[in-house]
């Protein structure tokens, strides 16, 4: 074996990638070659020295500084961000719908009448989109008629009472479902 091959085998030895046969050949060569023997010892010392170099540590409080520097919001899910706000808004809308359903039938009739009149006037003013407005006007007329029919139907005391109780029951059921969903989400996120 020549010294160049020996040098390569020393590298393989340091890489922990030497076969038993190669190691034997290397050991034999080193027994007769002083230079390679010294080279081997130097490499061993070198590797041990590097391995013995201490793992250094940053100053105290390093973890806290890193945690304070990161953006904690980037991995927050959109559902958790809005948790509570969406449910509160929907509950509020349902609550006002609940209140509205209990308002007097007369007030309902008057307000719906006013709304339909305003809509009609808007349709008349919108001249530049005549084709669409015409269709909407026709549709709104039918809708207005249907509304008056329904209002007439609902204005009957017994019918309105039945309808109002049904609406109240549905609203209460919806609120309960909303509360249940919110609680479930809170528990899941914990």
């Amino acid at each position: 074996m020549d010294c160049k091959t020996s040098s390569n085998l020393i590298m393989s030895y340091i890489d922990n990638n030497i076969t038993d046969k190669e190691l034997l050949a290397l050991q034999y060569h080193m027994s007769v070659c002083k230079n390679c023997r010294e080279e081997f010892m130097l490499f061993n010392e070198l590797v041990e020295s590097i391995c013995d170099l201490p793992m250094l540590e940053p100053s105290d409080g390093f973890e806290m500084r890193v945690i304070d520097s990161i953006d904690h919001s980037i991995y927050k899910s959109s559902t958790s961000k809005w948790l509570g706000i969406k449910e509160i808004l929907i509950s509020t809308i349902i609550y006002f719908g609940f209140l509205f359903s209990f308002s007097s039938s007369e007030a309902t009739i008057i307000s719906l009448n006013s709304v339909s009149k305003i809509v009609q006037q808007l349709y008349l003013l919108g001249g530049f989109i005549e084709g669409i407005i015409e269709y909407i006007m026709v549709g709104s007329l039918y809708t207005r008629k249907m509304m008056f029919y329904l209002l007439g139907f609902f204005s009957r005391a017994t019918t309105s009472t039945l309808v109002f109780y049904t609406i109240s029951l549905l609203v209460l059921a919806a609120v309960l479902v909303m509360i249940q969903t919110t609680l479930y989400k809170i528990l899941k996120n914990q």
């Binding site: 250094l56 540590e57 973890e63 990161i70 904690h72 991995y75 899910s77 958790s80 996120n189």
Partner: peptide, 17 residues
């Protein structure tokens, strides 16, 4: 990734050296 950003402190402790 699921939202517990504070847990990153454990990663920092493990690999700071």
């Amino acid at each position: 990734i699921k939202g517990e950003s504070e847990s990153f402190g454990e990663i920092v402790t493990r690999y700071k050296k």
